[in-house]
Nucleic acid binder design. Structure first.
Length: 426
RNA sequence: GGAGAGGUGGCCGAGUGGUCGAAGGCGCAGCACUGGAAAUGCUGUAAUGGGGUAACUCAUUCGAGGGUUCGAAUCCCUCCCUCUCCGCCA
């Protein structure tokens, strides 16, 4: 959520910065509601002040033994009743304005950072660096991962459709073990990098999804449980960031680093034609996620470090990748700045997203009310929140199945994974 | 699912209709004491929103939402959550 004060004080600047996202935003309804709300608030608080005063006066008189039926007291009570009637009219009006204002604010995305390249779509993302050309596979006949996976008997898409629906998969035998090995490998690496592991709930409530920004705008992207206000998480960013919702943290406890392995669930509404085969776009997938809550002064540096924590996994696995900085048109709803890491997928001759590392600044912290207090400083400040995949496990598996594919149709196991899997070839 | 207890400031905890934003303690900050520190003593210490250059000031907030009342942390209703016991269950 954006700072209402900032919108009020610098509306044109906010407007211009939002506009970089190649979408149209109109702040006038917000400004109008804000003005009306504050006018009402002034009137209301004046009435309330008088009402409080009357209450105190009556209290004093009763204590000093006045007759409760005396004219003086009856007159005060009368005035109190009149004020109550007026307030009964004003209060709902103001509440309504506040709700409307809040609803509009919750729909506004974050402001892109000044350094974020301006662009309309993913086409204009900027490549920051590339790594691992020497590990590009030399095998000229690489099958797509879903084909080799089915050949090896470790991926079963057909029966997953029967059991659930399309865009689900069964990992079978060594396939399941490989997924497990990858999860453990990633968690081991990230905990060594300083992230405290959490195994969080994967069903969360509405407030949590609102806190991180999936609700209210992207409700159609999540699976909701009928009969309960619980939703399947689209990413562990949601439970991890919301761990500290409505808390005032001690500045000394920052930064807080967490990582988690969770399954993630996405409805993928509106992506019907895309990536219909393979592990790339499933309704359920596994991911190891990193989340940081940091002091605003350090968030830029923490963001770079988080990106390194993500790419370190690919380097250890010797999978070629590139890093992109997302342009304003492709930037996520809550992000100020975002790096995507893309891994090489030989079967499609393309790099594909395997991690996304975002710095949200105080956008989520304001929604989720996550603040910190610095000793010696008055009041509280919002933390900055960051999140990144470390990494998407299924996509890592698909990258291994392709990049490590041998001419004889076998697949080598990356060296660092061999101790986890107990074998060197699939 | 059934029965009971409870949810108060950064934390613990008192408070059953009136000057309560809330005793006391912990923590934190400042001052005194000290060569320096510890201990001790004194003082201060909530958040959010509005108005004001500021000092300051007004309002809201005692799990959430309603109600009673001139006035609610306190009384009534609904809901949520936590704990204990029972039932069910991996």
């Amino acid at each position: 959520m954006l700072d209402l004060k900032q919108i009020r004080e610098n509306p044109t600047e906010v407007q211009n910065r939002l506009q970089r996202r190649s979408d149209v935003y109109d702040l006038t309804p917000i400004l109008d509601l804000d003005t009306k709300q504050r006018e009402l608030q002034t009137t209301r608080t004046q009435l309330q002040a008088r009402s409080n005063e009357i209450g105190k006066l009556i209290g004093q008189k009763m204590k000093s033994g006045s007759d409760p039926k005396s004219e003086e007291i009856l007159a005060l009570k009368n005035e109190g009743n009149e004020i109550k009637a007026q307030l009964a009219d004003l209060e709902p009006q103001e509440k309504d304005l506040k709700t409307q204002l809040e609803d509009l604010l919750l729909e506004l995305p974050n402001l892109p950072s000044d350094s974020t390249p301006i662009g309309k779509s993913e086409e204009e993302n900027v490549e920051v660096r590339r790594w691992g050309d020497e590990y590009l596979p030399t095998n000229p006949h690489i099958l797509p991962h879903w084909e080799i996976g089915e050949q090896l008997g470790i991926l079963d898409f057909k029966r997953a459709v029967k059991v659930a629906q399309s865009r689900f998969v069964n990992l079978v035998g060594v396939g399941a073990a490989l997924e497990r090995a990858l999860i453990n490998f990633m968690l081991d690496r990230q905990t060594k990098a300083g992230y405290i592991e959490v195994l969080p709930p994967i069903l969360v409530n509405r407030q949590s999804l609102t806190g991180t920004g999936q609700l209210p705008k992207f409700a159609e992207e999540s699976f909701q449980c009928e009969g309960d206000d619980l939703w399947l998480i689209p990413t562990a960013e949601v439970p991890l960031t919301n761990l500290y919702r409505d808390e005032i943290l001690d500045a000394e406890h920052l930064p807080i680093y967490h990582c988690a392995y969770t399954p993630c669930f996405r409805r993928e509404a509106g992506s019907y034609g895309k990536d219909t085969r393979g592990l790339i776009r499933l309704h359920q997938f596994n991911k190891v996620e990193m989340v940081k809550l940091v002091h605003p002064d350090t968030s830029e540096a923490e963001h770079e470090k988080m990106l390194d924590n993500a790419t370190a996994i690919l380097e250890a696995l010797k999978l070629p990748y590139r890093v992109l900085e997302l342009c304003t048109g492709d930037l996520g709803f809550g992000a100020v700045k975002c790096y995507d890491v893309e891994v090489w997928l030989p079967s499609s001759g393309k790099y594909r997203e395997i991690s996304s590392c975002s710095n949200c600044w105080d956008f989520q912290a304001r929604r989720a009310n996550i603040r910190f207090k610095e000793t010696g400083k008055k009041g509280t400040q919002y933390v900055h929140t960051l999140n990144g995949s470390g990494l998407a496990v299924g996509r890592t598996m698909s990258a291994i199945l392709e990049n490590y594919q041998q001419e004889n149709g076998s697949v080598k196991v990356p060296e660092v994974l061999q101790p986890y899997l107990g074998r060197s070839v699939l």
